[in-house]
Design a protein around this nucleic acid. Sequence first.
DNA 1: CTTGCGTATGATAGCGTTCTCTCAGTTAGG
DNA 2: CCTAACTGAGAGAACGCTATCATACGCAAG
Lengths: 366, 366
Amino acid sequence: MPRKTAEPKHSKAPTRVQLPVRKRATLADVARVAGVVPMTVSRAINRSGYVSEEVRARVTEAVEQLQYRPNMLARQLKGQRFYAVGVMLPDIANPFGNELVLGIKEVLDDSGYTTFITTSGGSVEKETAALQSFVDHRIDGLIVATRGSIAGDKALGEIAAQHVPIVTIGRPVESPGVDCVSVDHYRGAFEAASHLIESGHKRVGYIGIGHPEDAVPQRFEGYLAALEAAGIPFRPEYAVREVDAPAFATEEDGYLGMLELANRKQRPTAVFARNDFAAVGALRALHTLGLRVPQDIAVVGFDNIRLSAYTTPPLTTVEQPILEQGRMAARFLVERIEGKAKGKPRNVVMASKLVKRESVMKRAKA
Amino acid sequence: MPRKTAEPKHSKAPTRVQLPVRKRATLADVARVAGVVPMTVSRAINRSGYVSEEVRARVTEAVEQLQYRPNMLARQLKGQRFYAVGVMLPDIANPFGNELVLGIKEVLDDSGYTTFITTSGGSVEKETAALQSFVDHRIDGLIVATRGSIAGDKALGEIAAQHVPIVTIGRPVESPGVDCVSVDHYRGAFEAASHLIESGHKRVGYIGIGHPEDAVPQRFEGYLAALEAAGIPFRPEYAVREVDAPAFATEEDGYLGMLELANRKQRPTAVFARNDFAAVGALRALHTLGLRVPQDIAVVGFDNIRLSAYTTPPLTTVEQPILEQGRMAARFLVERIEGKAKGKPRNVVMASKLVKRESVMKRAKA
DNA sequence: CTTGCGTATGATAGCGTTCTCTCAGTTAGG
DNA sequence: CCTAACTGAGAGAACGCTATCATACGCAAG
């Protein structure tokens, strides 16, 4: 590969070079055009150090003329900040991820960081590889919003040990220096289930228990606690597991789960779906079965996805402050990166809110 | 965001302690431990050049001992490949993006590239900035799935001029060297609308015309063509625009649009929604109005999102081969990056497929 | 022997930035 | 005037890696 073919040609006149589009301009190129030394250009561009107005102007002009853009790589090589943050999501379909990213980007954009997102693809191995890849490409920090697992947490811990600031969302990790932002799913689920009970339901089903190794079974636990608080014994046959737990429960899980529950000798009169997707599937199943919501069966979901206001009937659900979670996670991360926060991991738990719509109604005394 | 301004010497306040961070091992560290020269380690790691088995073993051991991981940045600085690809999506809520990424990652993972995703945030300026940021961080190529616009296409063209391989999805760009993969929305819409007409509908509404500058009004045009083919004159009052067009039409657009259409003196007997979200909103509106689907009004959507099989009633819609689009885009990009494809831009248009469910029924002769 | 070639490793020179150090000129204070 | 501090700008090294050239050994062909 021939190096820079700097052909002197004949005259030194620039002659409005019709971009040979060879390579991108470098600091040195700009310096040559502006008639200064590269360091001066660097100073002018970064506003660090003293540069006279006159020189700054010449540099600015040269930059525009050459369409110069700094090479981040070289910059970063010098141990600078990378000004990039990696975000790990379970997948992209989950609306949760979308809002999260919205909140994250809001803060990160302001702080001058670029946000790179990647998805775990479901498996722990892939997630670990992707995480390592982020680190290899030298990002400044990581926001991890995938669900925890023993293996995954271990991998995360190892990365944290490499001094990469990490903030997790909804996934407490015991590693030192890893902050965590989450929502009180337990409390949210408790309130949602209690709402059903207060509306007169005694036979309350649950769709989407989750795998045993699920690190965040808080919703199910909140449901159990609400039953207990009301003195209603838990009936295992009223709680169904999702078919195949990927990152989150889907409409299909809700659909099949509801069919199963509706088949019990004593049908539940209310159902708590682990998330809104499952709730939508449940609504579909009930409609298929000819059961009316909320008259025959009440349904509540969790997450308050955009769609849930448009289901038939509109869904009562639990809203979590996703945007705010994203913002806070990003803020925490930036603080860690810039050394403004150090020491003990922070663990913030935010409150959720019950949103009442039409899928639940006061039950006439049965 | 002022980084570090030149500070007069006397204010040595924070002293910027060189972080006690045990720095990551470098090639030189490994070389020292293995008792060889850095270049040899490089050769051993990259399997380039001659390295004796014995030395290779020593190096491997040193690498493990020091937990060494190559610094991609330094590598890239030498003009190497970065093995990373940037994917630009309009946002993350759109299920379209999810499946696309699935297809893209499938191919990219196999080829050894990391996938970095970012979102445009809706505005052209932000998109341009994000694109530039990708380039600044030196990715090997770009897959762009945002909707086109004059300004956006120009920005894209400029980046393409910097010799960054680009593949767009559903967005033909006239720049040389930019491949494009898309789906025949026109044909898909034509078939969907024709399906309504063949089912006996003469008054067919359309929800979600889109802005005039919309680069891809093909769905609307397909609808118009179907009307024309059937000899049905287009009635402007049957076509409503979404409220505020972000990246795509939402449930709200469908809801409001449907209310508007239902209010016409002569109500349409069928409605074509620009996408499934809008269709879901329309279903909700119809239910609110007490109109039955499909008996009173038929509804078709577009995209076949996962949810559309679970609406009430399940939605007839147009499925596009999103996964396949992602795969193909990724394949194209890798070919460009690796120089296996050069020259004239490729432009592949894939076919869509009508998925019939229960939101449309044969209409009795009125 | 010399030449030639394949193997294995060392030495050096960058890649594009920025950091540190140096030096020249300018102002202000005593 | 001389020191001190500030302003402005250059020279050189360094970041971690790899391309390239040079070197050293062994051995077969001329």
